[in-house]
Design a protein around this nucleic acid. Sequence first.
DNA 1: ATTATTGCTTGCAAATTGAAAGTAATTATA
DNA 2: TATAATTACTTTCAATTTGCAAGCAATAAT
Lengths: 142, 142
Amino acid sequence: MRQDFRCDCPFTSALDILGDKWILVIIKQMLIEGKETFKDFAESEEAIATNILSAKLKFLEEVGIIIKTKRPGNKKTNLYLLTEKGLALTPILVELATWSDSHLRDLHPTIVNGESMESLRNDKTAFAKALDKKYREKLAGN
Amino acid sequence: MRQDFRCDCPFTSALDILGDKWILVIIKQMLIEGKETFKDFAESEEAIATNILSAKLKFLEEVGIIIKTKRPGNKKTNLYLLTEKGLALTPILVELATWSDSHLRDLHPTIVNGESMESLRNDKTAFAKALDKKYREKLAGN
DNA sequence: ATTATTGCTTGCAAATTGAAAGTAATTATA
DNA sequence: TATAATTACTTTCAATTTGCAAGCAATAAT
């Protein structure tokens, strides 16, 4: 899966990588929901088909957003983990959720609205920072 | 084009609307490049096909991100303008460009790197605010 | 009156997505 | 230790989406 860029615009180029239905959902699952194995992603509530999942994970690895590893001693289960390049997507995800929270409830009234949304509303920089920190701690643990 | 949401997750729901190759590119063209007519979009460097453009503009209008108007006295040229819901996407675009600037240059070395990128790097909140202000002034002028 | 422009739509081929089933390599269990 | 279950995929094929090219109707300019 070789990547082509439509032009030299930084906005468009980001969307050449991220502009699709699944890429950022997978990254969200890793960052927010702690998912890390093929099975984790395949069983998530968004219900991605396994062939698509396989292709997207390959692509994400190719462009350096995730790395594929294994836990020492386990030869079976692959772990997919965010790289620095992947972790740097946190602010984009936070802005997406912020926009949903404030502008998508009319179209989609059942969007979750718990205490984590409250803390997002309260201070999104802190929210992003906390996500980042939590993920780095998880990485240190693996 | 009726919209279905995959689940109640705010991240995923934003991507149900925005997660595609063209939607945010069109919004970027409006916000950053001042494009507002069908012709403007069709002639942009990203080279969107007119049938796709037509479908995406319809969708954006349906979900309330843009409105379709005409300038008084002109019965021919349609104007597509961002609503508040659309303008609220500015921070997402700014974060996309920031990520491109810092993490996409290895894969795509010819991404533009002029003085506007400099000012984005310097203070992205101010950058977003300036874009927002400029667009509101344009709206006031129409 | 004629030509050009704008904003589309239509037709069709190519690419992408998705559901379902199948496979191969581990790992757990009787 | 044989058997079953789990994990990580791949394959097949149908359906949907994308994209190119051409066409068309309404308005505006000459």
